[in-house]
């Protein structure tokens, strides 16, 4: 879970907070929420694809 958190934070910070301002704006938060959801979904898609392959 630590590894997931760290990689997801790095990816979503890079995707969503390209110009760090004086606070997290509403659109920053909306982007981070979507990015988290897509990251977790991606993790699941990849987990299934890898499991199928190594079976």
């Amino acid at each position: 879970a630590q590894q997931l958190l760290q990689k997801m934070t790095d990816k979503c910070f890079n995707k969503c907070i390209t110009k760090p301002g004086s606070d997290l704006s509403g659109s920053d938060r909306a982007c981070l929420a979507k990015c988290m959801d897509r990251y977790l979904e991606s993790w699941n898609v990849i987990s299934k694809a890898y499991a199928t392959r190594v079976q």
Binding site: T9, C12, P20, D23, R29, L32, M36
Partner: peptide
């Protein structure tokens, strides 16, 4: 701002998880 927003991002993500 980069440090502060990175920390904010970490807290946002931990709380939302």
């Amino acid at each position: 701002n980069c440090v502060e927003r990175f920390l904010d991002t970490t807290f946002f993500i931990v709380n939302r998880l």
